[in-house]
Design a protein around this nucleic acid. Structure first.
Lengths: 138, 138
DNA sequence: ACCCTACATTGGACATTGTCTAAGTCAAGA
DNA sequence: TCTTGACTTAGACAATGTCCAATGTAGGGT
């Protein structure tokens, strides 16, 4: 993620202070912030950044394939900067904590041809749910 | 689904016209309506049913395990009456159409112990995405 | 180094989806 | 039939996301 800004500039992205800050907030693995969480953290570094700019920038990063959009609970979408390594998610059914996980095999192969109904199936996302160790104690 | 109302009455559910209508709308397999779609269809049969009642009734049906809540796109949740047979979903990435599908094997077994991070993993939901035949033509 | 200008940002209104509450209504048991 | 606690209602409110016109600015051209 550290050379993200260079990759984006190479693709003709105009580099503004706002975009830099959003990218910095998402830097680091295993982060799954909502748009408003990104906005709150961005505001720490650039106090007047607008909510709409955060939404715009996140959408662009998703469109460029640099960030994944994850919606595990029907509430706010979360943004996952770990887009370069295929993975799935494990979600705590109590507190909502998310971890990246790596199941074995390719889930696409589990869907037989006669269950595809003529769709050009391109992707399979798996969400595992269970109680995390922290919530199990409480 | 046809004996749903009897099962619910056996569990002490108070049977009102509103609840009956919501259950009737969800009757039939392979239906994946949003709450507002359920409300629109319920209104055809019972013009003054309130939106809140539809939301309440759907939540109760989910809590009772009679209906599944599905959120495939971060937009409105959809309600799936096919809760009695385990299945997954295939979603068109253009038009959002949803089909029930039955992959082979159990996706839970694909998550090794060392990838569970101490979670008591209880469930795995898989969403397949691709372009449906209808959208491929257009 | 300084302009241009196309693209980005801003703030706030608006849209969608879902939740809550207080007051009125009714299903079902006695 | 009466009673009562559960159900329904309407509308305000909350959370999340989108849109727009006005303003600002990054980066190329000179």
């Amino acid at each position: 993620m550290s050379d993200l800004l260079e990759r984006l500039r190479d693709r003709g992205w105009r580099l503004t202070a706002q975009r830099r800050v959003v990218a910095e907030v998402l830097d680091g693995d295993h982060v799954h912030y909502t748009a408003d969480e990104v906005h709150a953290r961005a505001t720490d570094r650039l106090p007047e950044i607008a909510r709409a700019t955060v939404y715009n920038t996140l959408s662009e990063l998703v469109a460029l394939g640099e960030v994944l959009e994850v919606s595990t609970d029907g509430r706010a979408k979360r943004y996952d900067p770990n887009a370069r390594h295929s993975h799935q998610h494990l979600v705590c059914s109590r507190c909502g904590t998310i971890r990246d996980v790596h199941p074995t095999g390719d889930p696409l192969t589990a869907l037989p041809e006669h269950e595809r109904f003529g769709f050009a199936v391109a992707e399979a996302t798996v969400t595992y749910r269970g109680v995390c160790p922290h919530c199990a104690d409480a």
